[in-house]
Amino acid sequence: MTSTTTLPGEIVPAQHPNLKLGPGLLQSISGTSDSATIVSTRAGELQHSANRSKWWIESNARRYVPAAQESVIGQISGRAGEGYRVDIGGAHNASLDGLAFEGATKRNRPNLKVNSLVYARVSLAHKDMEPELECFDAQTRKAEGFGELKGGFVVKCSLGMSRRLLDPNHFLLPLLGSRFPLECAVGMNGRIWVDTKSAQNTIIVARCIEAADPDGGGLDEADVNKLLNGIQS
């Protein structure tokens, strides 16, 4: 993988018969289908997959723009008819249908209070429409971890940090997990829910995430280890 820095409006040399564009890239409208130009819409590092079929721009931000199939942590901001209005940190509230839960029927569906938290998947994200959420896996229709989050605490971080935490090779969560058991749900909207046995450990997780955030402290593994030793001693 190579990476180059691009700015919004730059033409990106992405060419592939089966081209897939990720966040930050747009097919320019003026081009025809066989000679379409790809334009970047964001500042960041241009990256592509090994066979050059998938292209995207890696950048860090704090403002969430919903994208389909991303898992997010939302806060119920109100009821709307059969469903709920959910704040997912974007420009608009998302809607969550009352039946979009595992095993929910007309008679038996979860009753969520205002200000409670849900872990959900964005099922519809369109620039002209309100985003929609679902609390089950699209294929299996099982919960797969989605649903209401009870207890714990929510840490807010930059979008880049939440993407990094989803990377299984990132050091932070395994490092924390080797010290004490923890439960964690990472939302792509820069919210991370954590729950541990004691309040102190939850605070440690929150502080480590903030310290490792590239938008905050930006500490690496050795520094976070040092911080942990300092706190836990």
């Binding site: 200000n115 409670s116 207890g151 929510v154 309040a199 102190q200």
Partner: peptide
């Protein structure tokens, strides 16, 4: 949110801050 509020209050009761 409810979990944040409850956690922050219980942490304060144990003299801890986030």
């Amino acid at each position: 949110s409810i979990p944040e509020r409850e956690f922050a209050l219980s942490a304060l009761q144990q003299s801890m801050r986030i």
